[in-house]
């Protein structure tokens, strides 16, 4: 008995597993899946800049929110002064979602794309303004 056929079979299975992301995308004919565009509301556009520069917000927003939570919940502080000296109320519902009231088109797009499940919405309601969707 020659084991070569079993070795080749095992090798093929391994290669199929290793190359599965390629194979899956080729078989399903997936598109390149570019970065999702986030939708800015009129209010967000009018404000021009978030509490911090866009580059910072894009990568560090979760950390900023965590710090806000710490300051508000533990220390009772409410004022956040950014690098430009502007002061904001540290509040997800009242400050962030004042402009970004469109969670589905703003927050969720990238979070779904990168398979991230933030637990913000375990406590916060996703539509604090009560605006009709």
């Amino acid at each position: 008995m020659n084991d070569k056929k079993w070795i080749v079979l095992g090798l093929l299975i391994f290669m199929a597993l290793f190359l599965s992301p390629f194979l899956y995308n080729v078989v399903t004919g997936a598109k390149a899946a570019p970065m999702p565009e986030v939708v800015l509301t009129e209010k967000a556009k009018a404000a021009k800049q978030c509490v911090m520069p866009t580059e910072f917000m894009r990568t560090e927003h979760m950390q900023l929110l965590d710090e806000w939570r710490l300051k508000v919940v533990r220390s009772g502080l409410r004022d956040f002064t950014n690098t430009e000296g502007k002061t904001f109320n540290m509040s997800l519902s009242n400050t962030c979602m004042d402009c970004h009231s469109n969670k589905a088109d703003f927050c969720d797009r990238c979070h779904n794309y990168a398979s991230v499940k933030p637990y913000c919405w375990d406590c916060h309601i996703d539509n604090p303004q009560g605006e009709t969707k």
Partner: peptide
């Protein structure tokens, strides 16, 4: 992370 996924997705497709 979104920019990185854009790159990796373009690689595998």
């Amino acid at each position: 992370i979104a920019a990185i996924k854009e790159l990796t997705m373009s690689l595998v497709t």
